[in-house]
Design a binder for these strands. Sequence first.
DNA 1: CCCTGATTCGC
DNA 2: GCGAATCAGG
Length: 240
Amino acid sequence: MEWTDETIARLRDLWSQGLSTAEIGRQLSITKNAVVGKAHRLGLPPRPSPIRNRKTTDGETGTTEAAPRRKSPSKAKATETAGSDLFADGKDASPVKAVSDGVEKISEKPAAVVRKVPSVAPEAPKAPQPAAAAAAAAAAAARAVPAAQKETAALHREPAAVTPPKQEPRVAPVSRPALPPRFSTAGIDRPTRRGPSCCWPIGDPGTPGFHFCGATPLSGKPYCAEHAAIAYVKIRDRRD
DNA sequence: CCCTGATTCGC
DNA sequence: GCGAATCAGG
């Protein structure tokens, strides 16, 4: 992973918006582990952890030993680059758009939806805490959507034709080259100019045409005026 | 099971 | 510094 200014800016932004690490990872086409790891290294404020504070400031139990770790890390590491050729050949993800046309509601850019939800609070768009809370709630809501649809599908299940989707609710159940997100930002065009630039994603992350807006952002915001309007205010029909 | 974030530690 | 493996709670 090449941590450019843009990716770091996006990480920071998405992180502060309260998106889950996995969600951020999906947008950046990296794993949640990478997101968390980088966030820590950047000293980003930790968000409410689902687990208990394993380490209190002080050793209190003393017997806090549970050291079963590592099995064969190098093995998993080795396969890392092997799968990348999946989309390295001529086949790109061009059919994605066409196929996803009818199902994009439940699969395309879930975070984009999330991003504009907290904007429904016109009073305090600046307040970090409420915004983060709203974003978190929105994220939960976004997750609930596909889940609800899954439930509905289950309820109306036909005895004849049932295709067990198993998981991946965010991904269209239709045949599509399931995004091969392993795509470094290396090939993505980035602003030649140094300094702040709008990091609004254009296109689908991980696909060949993906790039960032690159326009001059509002001061203090990671997006330009146009995209900041979409990101922070107004719930509107957005078309890329 | 699924999800989440946190931590560890080989690279 | 990076991130997969792992842990651990909901």
